[in-house]
Amino acid sequence: MKLLDCPVIGKRPISEFDYLGEVRVPPSQADELVWADYVFNRKGAPGVLRERWYHRPTGRWFVFDRDTLTDEIVAVVDAADVRYEEPRYEIPA
């Protein structure tokens, strides 16, 4: 994929986009291991990954489901579907 079919303005070169990787939501509860897993580990297996992309010229964020094997965008996801509340927990040191 070198052209990304932007849901708002159509096909644009991916050089206009920043790639932020998979959509990650902080765990709702965490101990040290769970938190470290959230901070440092990423999904690497091929398959459909829910990702955030940022279109710099328009300053817009997008959430796409992309098949990392075929490099195809399978779905445009509504950002509201991946919203979260900021958690409020303490992790005992």
């Binding site: 955030r52 509201a80 919203r83």
Partner: peptide, 11 residues
């Protein structure tokens, strides 16, 4: 970019 991302993440 970070500010705008948080706006979207938290709605």
């Amino acid at each position: 970019r970070t500010l705008s991302l948080k706006i979207q993440e938290l709605g």
